[in-house]
């Protein structure tokens, strides 16, 4: 491998990663007490390569796929058990995303 040279950006990024410029990250806890971390494969915050290319683009495209069956229950209200009907007020997330309720504290 020592005779192979990275010539494009992605290859250079991979090379930098292989050299250990970025240490392993295993958790990015939210900034609030007793809260939750991420799933990285992909997660809510980051994909398995510690980037964002693996996430839905934009996130709103598949938001209800995340919430209805509780893929990321720490970050998005799950509608299966804990917050049924959370998305009822907004049927098209990509268009009406400002109507989506943010749940802060309390039951």
């Amino acid at each position: 491998m020592k005779h192979v040279k990275a010539i494009n950006l992605r290859a250079q990024a991979l090379e930098a990663r292989a050299k250990g410029e970025l240490p392993d990250i295993y958790a990015l806890q939210m900034q609030l007490p007793m809260s939750c971390s991420t799933v990285f494969d992909p997660g809510w915050e980051v994909d398995g390569m510690f980037g964002l290319a693996g996430l839905c683009q934009p996130m709103e495209n598949d938001l209800y796929g995340c919430s209805a069956d509780c893929w990321w229950p720490a970050q998005v209200p799950d509608e299966l058990v804990n917050y049924p009907g959370w998305s009822d007020q907004c049927s098209a997330a990509v268009r009406d995303w400002q109507k989506i309720k943010f749940i802060q504290g309390g039951p």
Partner: peptide, 16 residues
């Protein structure tokens, strides 16, 4: 330093 700017939260249960 590395900075990840990521998507928002829709839930913060422990905020009071």
């Amino acid at each position: 330093a590395f900075l990840l700017v990521t998507v928002q939260l829709f839930l913060q249960e422990t905020m009071n």
